[in-house]
């Protein structure tokens, strides 16, 4: 086994040292720290991952992909995802360049077409490649631009968390609000509840495994569940390599259209 399971006392020691901080940050700072923590390696990493999709009948399908990303500015990133499974999606690519002002650039490349095409910002509430993650969940704009309120602290399992309520700014967001449990020590979101525009629970997110690679923490296994459709996606980051080596040229349409 090439992984070392943290012992509970060690974790408690870590958590305890973090809890020693005398002042409570504001909700906006907590959300900013959470976004900056980059829990899925979307801002300066090379990741190999797979996702298992399960529907209410129990049928499962698998999606496999690799992704590379580059931090553009605080909480903004460029990322390029390349799919290798299922077979009808193999070779497809998705390029996203986040912008502070205006809509993000999103381009989709399908090998059968041989060319990339622009994807509408209105797609943000749609499922990303059939998963339970929406495009909005990937671009995190609802969290980046939303209004955050600190509603309290809670111990989730054995980790102290801030509980933050975020109301997306955009009226076109699929969510009316998002509840987030953010770990106090490493700023990872351990749990999220997303409510639809009618304020009914739509999706839940749960971190199942977190991993430290070097000095960075990642959510290496997580589950997003659409409770209304009884459909879930378990996302596993199989390999994570943090890097600052990627440049602008790695996130262009030319790069997206390469045959990898």
């Amino acid at each position: 086994m090439n992984k070392l399971i943290f012992s509970v006392p060690a974790v408690l020691t870590l958590a305890g040292s973090s809890m020693a901080a005398p002042t409570t940050p504001s909700a906006a700072v907590i959300v900013q720290q959470m976004l900056e923590s980059d829990p899925w390696g979307l801002s300066g990493a090379s990741v190999a991952a797979h996702a298992v999709l399960s529907d209410k009948a129990g049928a499962q399908s698998e999606l496999a992909f690799s992704a590379k990303s580059r931090r553009l500015a605080p909480s903004l990133a460029a990322s390029l995802v390349r799919f290798s499974a299922p077979p009808d999606l193999a070779g497809a690519g998705f390029l996203q360049i986040q912008k502070k002002e205006g809509d993000d650039d999103r381009m989709l490349f399908l090998p059968d077409l041989g060319r990339a095409r622009r994807i509408s910002g209105n797609l943000r509430s749609n499922a990303f490649m059939g998963t339970d993650m929406s495009f909005a969940d990937l671009d995190r704009r609802d969290l980046r631009d939303g209004t955050a309120t600190l509603t309290g602290s809670e111990t989730l399992q054995r980790w102290d968390c801030f509980v933050v309520n975020v109301v997306p700014k955009s009226a076109s967001s699929q969510y009316s609000r998002v509840e987030i449990w953010v770990r106090k020590d490493n700023h990872l979101p351990l749990k999220m509840n997303m409510f639809d525009r009618s304020n009914v629970l739509l999706k839940t997110f749960a971190a199942l495994e977190v991993k430290r690679v070097g000095e960075s923490w990642f959510i290496s296994r997580s589950r997003m569940t659409n409770v209304q459709q009884k459909h879930s996606t378990e996302l596993v980051l199989d390999k994570i390599v943090t890097t600052t080596q990627f440049g602008d040229e790695d996130f262009t349409v030319r790069e997206l259209e390469k045959s990898k």
Partner: peptide
């Protein structure tokens, strides 16, 4: 692990 039981791991090279 379940949704109420999360594990925490650290890669050995770290």
């Amino acid at each position: 692990p379940t949704e109420t039981e999360m594990t925490e791991v650290i890669e050995p090279e770290a």
